[in-house]
Design a protein around this nucleic acid. Structure first.
Length: 298
DNA sequence: AACTCGGGGTA
DNA sequence: TACCCAGAGTT
């Protein structure tokens, strides 16, 4: 890397962080009275679910279960109902398992080291780094879909990052993270926020970008996405996932165990419905009683 | 490395 | 419609 490139990276960092001082959203999990548990809950809810949908669910969740111990002893059916339509309900299951592990292994306190966080159910590379930075203000390399896009454009000169996270991206993010705890945590929040508000996937607001003049993608003439041909979004209508979602929605609303005959009336393909139910039972999201009726786990 | 796993808002 | 969203776990 040339000295000029090193300088440019430093300017990108400082420009984004200064922008963040005036542009940061007022999110509840950033409030001064937040707890590490509140931060952890927010990060799990935000795994593939947009901020606007998480915010009300997060408020209700933290009111009902303000500590890991509270969630640990809750009926799982209540947990899955509170999760509602956030999507990927296995996350709710893992979040409760996570709370129980925190109680059992860490005396009810969210751990503050990366290995301990990574050992918790539902906590992967991103979430562990995010909790370290945002709950404890510790240096970590936080790379989510926003950061990947910001770095791909500003430093990599590409329209969008590759379909899957690469070692080169991790290395770049690691090299870019400031040395100090406070600075690294601030950079993590700022780079995510830029990706969420300005450097968006579609129609980026380059006119509002603090580092547009430094952006490698713009300097290259804003070339199109080189990976476009390899991207493929998963279908939704008629999929097993939709069938699972339909069953879960019914179980959430039902006060009593649900007869299979009722579920058949909700889905056009009985075999696919069977697969969906078997999958849900396998995942621990649903249970069958002696009369073959379905209900949420107690 | 490639899959699976929800659901809704937006263009 | 298609795309996108503060990813994790399994194969």
């Amino acid at each position: 890397m040339t000295a000029r490139e090193a300088t440019r990276r430093t300017e990108v960092r400082s420009g984004v962080v200064q922008w963040f001082d005036g542009a940061a959203r007022d999110l509840p999990w950033r409030a001064p009275d937040r707890t590490p548990w509140g931060v952890l809950v927010s990060e799990v809810m935000l795994q593939q679910t947009p901020v606007v949908r998480v915010e009300p669910a997060w408020r209700a969740w933290l009111e009902q279960w303000p500590t890991p111990a509270d969630l640990a002893r809750a009926p799982t059916a209540d947990v899955l109902r509170a999760w509602g339509r956030l999507g990927y309900p296995r996350r709710a299951l893992r979040l409760q398992e996570c709370a129980r592990a925190i109680v059992e292994l860490h005396d009810g306190v969210v751990p503050r080291t990366e290995p301990e966080l990574r050992d918790l159910p539902g906590i992967g590379e991103y979430t562990a780094a995010a909790v370290l930075a945002f709950a404890y203000g510790k240096r970590s390399v936080v790379v989510d879909t926003n950061v990947r896009r910001v770095l791909a454009r500003a430093v990599g000169g590409a329209a969008l990052p590759a379909p899957s996270y690469t070692a080169a991206e991790r290395a770049l993010a690691t090299a870019l993270a400031p040395d100090g705890d406070v600075e690294a945590a601030r950079w993590a929040a700022a780079s995510m926020e830029l990706g969420a508000l300005v450097c968006t996937a579609k129609a980026p607001k380059c006119g509002a970008c603090p580092v547009a003049g430094l952006c490698a993608w713009r300097r290259a003439g804003s070339p199109p996405d080189a990976h476009a041909a390899r991207r493929r979004t998963q279908a939704w209508a008629g999929t097993d996932r939709q069938a699972r979602g339909r069953v879960m929605a019914e179980l959430r609303h039902a006060a009593e165990p649900v007869d299979r005959a009722l579920l058949v009336s909700l889905w056009h393909d009985p075999q696919q419905l069977d697969r969906a139910i078997a999958g849900l039972v396998e995942d621990g999201l649903a249970e069958q009683d002696e009369a073959n009726r379905l209900h949420l786990p107690r």
